[in-house]
Design a protein around this nucleic acid. Structure first.
Lengths: 333, 333
DNA sequence: TTGTAGGCGTTATCAG
DNA sequence: CTGATAACGCCTACAA
């Protein structure tokens, strides 16, 4: 482990023939420095390759500029696009994203939040799992911003961004009805994420509302492969569903592929499918999936906006409406 | 902007009735503390919610624990999986990833590296674009580790991880020949990334080697939509290619979809296709694409390993061989 | 406008 | 094993 030798403000000051404070002031936006001093400092800094030490600055200012992103399975299309959107918005706000991988267990999310505290992150944004109240309380008490995305529980002092999953599910149900579908199913993973469960419940509730039975099948992780299995289970039932709402697009892709290739069904003629997220693949011509678009960019925007809001004790809910994107996997439209 | 009030070692020391040093030692792995002192410190820390300030620790130890990931278009499947792999390996090495989005211009990469210096990152890993020599020199001079992935230029003191793109391209060519293909094409984007160009050159070189003409078409970004356009251009030529090597999987998916749906061609009977990356979608039953797998996990492993290697002036090349994954898009296999 | 002095929360060093 | 003390690099009064 070799020594790191970054150049410090003192060296710049010496070379420029000014005091350390002059250097500091040169790099502090609102400070007063004469043009001449500034010029000499900048010149020396350039020559030496000086860059303000954000660690030390953060120590003084009590503001690190770091924002912690806590997320599991980040290579999943929807997650990846959300991370990208958030990190871009953060950069625009002169913050920088620290990325922490979790395994989706609540304990590993707790560990991640502790790490965020250790790094004196200005904020933490949780995309996966639900941290313990004692930890989130500590975050908030420490003055850290906290954003929970698509989690259902409330946390004091945090911003909770949620989608109207249930309403969307109802909308999907109605779309199926308009398409003349008669046998309805919901295809879910068995991980029990709040937003996934909300979609399931919303779809079942719509079934009750309209006096129609809804079959629910759950299996595995929320991925393509589970969609394959779900299709095999649902499409071999005595009364085969002709309308399947999938908890997300990945499941829908696996399900559609299997319906077509293994069961030789035509979508949407034999089977209507609706997904959720609007990941890029749904627009590919092999899928053309009708789905609900998560307002990824707006979620990111709201999350980052919250970081500069004055602290409140109560926390805030922010509910957004996903847009139904009509493509070719449902008749009519 | 409300004040942040994190609890400090002094407060823990006061509560536990010991000195600040004792607290520090308790949280420093190799240090010697009596069991009793340790217990009292831990108890006080727990009660107060104390967490070591990594910013201050980094200042002292001259080691921030931060590693900067510089990447553009990070929501792309291959990039996302690489980021995930790297961030997991970093976590195992008790480092933490800082994520910086660039627009792939070399200038924005330079800016990102300056940010990495400002945060005293222990290392920077560049996945996109090529930073200026003056900047990379500064990084290395400052004692920062530097890893360049899939870049072609050399940089002193850096680890450069590359794939044997040309050899892979030759292998693809031979696979096409074995499948009995007669008219060869290479489908590329027009961004000119080193690794993409290497694949193109390797494929053309193989054509020359075997005395066969190779058509090259380039268009747009390295994404699905460009694959669509490339298919339209290539498949309307007088002599229609029956073997197309795509610069990456995203292009291949767009090209395959278009070949099948718009041109009603059967893959692999009418057209053989090979891609590159082995993104998850290639294993979906709509594609079953034969492709070269990037050794994502090994790349991540090597990159992280480099961070703990003793510093050398010369830098190091690390070349890896992508594995050809046989699926259904090429006859034979 | 400028320089000086003190402190931010740590860790390393060195007596005890 | 423990506690005082001096850094680390920076910012912010305060006084000049």
């Amino acid at each position: 482990m070799s020594q790191k030798i970054f150049v410090s403000a003192k060296e710049v000051a010496d070379r420029a023939g000014v005091s350390r404070s002059a250097v500091s002031r040169t790099f502090t936006p609102g400070a007063s420095v004469s043009a001449e001093t500034r010029r000499r400092v900048l010149e020396a800094a350039e020559a030496l390759g000086y860059h303000v030490n954000h660690l030390a600055r953060g120590l003084m200012r009590n503001e690190s500029g770091l924002v912690c992103l806590i997320v599991s399975e980040m290579d999943t299309p929807y997650r990846a696009s959300l991370i990208r959107a958030i990190s871009r918005h953060l950069q625009n706000a002169s913050k920088i994203a620290m990325l922490i991988n979790t395994d989706r267990s609540d304990r590993s999310v707790d560990e991640a939040l502790k790490l965020a505290i250790s790094y004196r992150a200005d904020a933490s944004i949780v995309l996966s799992g639900m941290p313990e109240k004692s930890i989130t309380d500590l975050c908030v008490k420490s003055g850290q911003r906290l954003v929970l995305i698509n989690r259902d529980e409330e946390r004091a002092g945090a911003l909770m961004i949620n989608l109207r999953d249930q309403e969307a599910a109802r909308q999907a149900f109605i779309a199926f009805q308009r398409a003349g579908c008669r046998s309805f199913a919901f295809a879910n993973s068995d991980v029990g994420t709040p937003s996934l469960m909300a979609r399931e419940e919303g779809f079942c509730a719509a079934g009750r509302e309209f006096g129609v039975d809804v079959i629910v099948e759950r299996f595995g992780a929320t991925r393509y492969q589970s969609g394959v299995v779900l299709a095999q289970r649902l499409l071999t039932r005595e009364v085969r569903p002709d309308a399947i709402f999938c908890a997300n697009d990945l499941l829908a892709c696996g399900l559609m592929d299997t319906a077509r290739h293994q069961f030789k069904l035509a979508v949407p003629d034999d089977l209507c499918v609706v997904g959720f997220d609007d990941i890029e693949q749904t627009s590919w011509s092999s899928y053309q999936l009708t789905t609900f678009a998560q307002p990824v960019d707006r979620i990111a925007e709201e999350a980052v906006l919250w970081l500069s809001q004055p602290m409140t004790d109560s926390g805030r809910f922010c509910r957004m409406t996903p847009d139904l994107v009509w493509r070719e996997s449902v008749r009519g439209g």
